[in-house]
Simulated scan of single mutants.
Amino acid sequence: MARPPRFDTDQILDAAVRLAASAGPGGVTMSAVAHAVGAPSGSMYHRFAGRTALLAEVWLRTVERFQDGYFDVLRADPDARRAARAAARYVVSWSRAHPQEAALLLYGPAEFGRADWSEEHTRRADSGNARVYASLGSLGEALGAAGPQDQERVTLALVDLPLAVVRRHLRAGQPLPPHTEDLAEECAAALLQTA
């Protein structure tokens, strides 16, 4: 009878998140992750084909967890303006609750080796991105966005602006101030008044 593994995939990916948050994507190596969980380096290759697969999985698991909550917030309120405000707040509140994951996402998929990902990993990433832009497009229509400039405003209000607030503090190694959710929501609401 085979021995059950001592470390599950989530434990390994959790260690990879911590390494990425502290040392960037370059710090996420097979041996560094194995060392962080106390596993032999060879055992890493039973879970991941190589470093590229590990980087893809840590990126995708993190972004998919964020996106799942983001979609829930966008769908939770039938009033488009309230949903938009809640989405802007969510970016900040999720980042506050998950600072290591937020720090990881500030790098972007290219820095996690996207150019070398498998077809399946690339498909998952593209599918998630398509869902985000479709949701933002639908929300933009509900807000009365009439053209490309209005849709750009929705993306700016609900993605770019809240991420800028988060980025500035996390990159400086500072906790997010208590007012950042309010600030992201207020700015999003102001931008979307003309949408």
Rank of each mutant, 00 (worst) to 15 (best):
Q11E: 15
A110T: 09
E120L: 09
P5M: 07
A21R: 08
W117C: 13
S118P: 04
L54G: 03
R167G: 07
M1S: 15
V91H: 01
L156N: 07
Q193V: 09
A2W: 07
L192P: 08
D77V: 07
P78L: 02
A39I: 09
V58N: 10
R153N: 08
T52V: 14
A83G: 06
T155Y: 00
G108K: 03
R75P: 01
S22Y: 08
G69L: 05
Y45P: 02
A130I: 09
P177V: 15
A146I: 06
L54W: 06
E57A: 13
L170N: 03
E152G: 14
L105M: 14
G113M: 11
V132L: 15
D14Q: 09
T9V: 15
A39E: 02
T180E: 12
D150S: 07
G69Q: 08
A84P: 10
T52C: 05
W94Y: 13
L158G: 05
S127G: 15
T62D: 03
A76S: 14
P177R: 10
D72F: 01
W59F: 15
P178M: 08
L74Q: 03
T122I: 04
G69E: 02
S127K: 09
A110G: 08
R123G: 02
A190L: 14
R89D: 04
S118M: 07
Q67V: 10
G173W: 13
Y70K: 11
S138N: 12
W117M: 13
A130M: 11
A53G: 14
A97R: 14
L161S: 12
I12T: 12
R168E: 12
P175Q: 10
W117H: 14
P5W: 03
M44C: 09
R85P: 05
L143K: 01
P25E: 11
A102T: 01
H179A: 11
A23L: 14
L156A: 10
A76L: 02
T29H: 02
R89N: 05
L19F: 06
M1T: 15
R6V: 12
V159T: 05
E120G: 06
L161E: 06
V73Q: 01
E185A: 15
A164L: 12
T52E: 05
V37R: 05
E141N: 01
L13D: 10
L19T: 14
D72T: 12
V132W: 04
E152Q: 07
L158Y: 03
L105E: 06
D160M: 02
G144M: 05
G113T: 13
G38H: 02
A134F: 04
P4A: 14
